[in-house]
Amino acid sequence: MTVTVVVGNPKPASRTLTAATLLAEGLRPGEEPAVVDLVEFGAGLLGWGDPAVTAAKEQTAASDLVIFASPTFKATYTGLLKLFLEQFDGGTGLAGVVAVPLMLGAGPTHALAPDLLLKPVLTEIGATTALPGLYLADRTFAEDGVLTAYTERWRPVVDALILGTGVTNHA
């Protein structure tokens, strides 16, 4: 089983990265998620063929579960995440990947953003997006219980999607 977190925060080692890692660990306890912190790629995300971006894309596409995380910027996900998602082919780029959209924000105003804005893009590029998106308060997610409640509720669904069929994304 391969679990990856893809983080589109323009700040390295962000709260978004922390939240995404906690979500991955909550949905797949005992599995160390691989981390793709998009801020590390800089201008490499602006075109196609950058070796580091290509390796991150391949890692993501080969994963069984991927958390796609972004802070809320201008009521949507960041341009960094958009640039990375553009690297995947429509319909098939994330075939076989269970994807969970995660967004953080200062308040509940944009609580529907993960489902309304990020989830359709993940679906368009072939990911299985059976779980609802998760929106977390960026300053209180570590202690407010929302993350724990989400993982307890949805862990069995992730297990069923990934393990129940006996099909994984590895060869």
Rank of each mutant, 00 (worst) to 15 (best):
V5T: 15
N9H: 14
P10A: 11
K11M: 11
A13E: 15
R15P: 00
R15N: 15
T16S: 14
T18K: 11
L23F: 07
L27F: 07
L27Y: 02
R28T: 14
E31A: 14
P33A: 12
V35H: 13
V35Q: 15
D37R: 02
V39I: 14
V39N: 01
E40Y: 00
F41A: 11
G42L: 11
G44Y: 04
L45S: 02
L46D: 15
G47A: 15
W48I: 13
W48K: 14
G49I: 13
V53T: 11
E58Q: 15
E58N: 13
Q59W: 05
T60Q: 06
A62C: 01
A62M: 02
D64A: 07
L65V: 14
V66S: 00
A69G: 11
P71T: 05
P71C: 09
P71E: 08
T72P: 01
F73N: 08
A75E: 06
T76K: 06
T76M: 11
Y77T: 09
T78P: 04
G79P: 10
L80E: 08
L81K: 01
L81Q: 03
K82L: 13
K82T: 15
K82M: 14
L83C: 13
L85M: 14
E86M: 10
Q87I: 04
G91T: 11
A99I: 04
L104R: 00
L104F: 04
G105N: 06
P108C: 02
T109F: 08
H110M: 09
L112Q: 12
A113S: 14
P114Y: 02
D115K: 02
P120S: 11
P120G: 06
V121N: 07
T123A: 15
T123I: 04
E124N: 12
I125M: 05
A127E: 01
T128H: 05
A130G: 05
A130T: 14
L131A: 04
P132L: 09
L136Q: 02
F141M: 04
F141E: 03
D144P: 09
D144G: 08
V146C: 05
T148H: 10
T151E: 06
W154A: 03
W154F: 15
P156A: 03
V158R: 01
L161H: 01
L163Y: 00
G164N: 06
G164Y: 06
T165D: 00
T165G: 15
N169L: 08
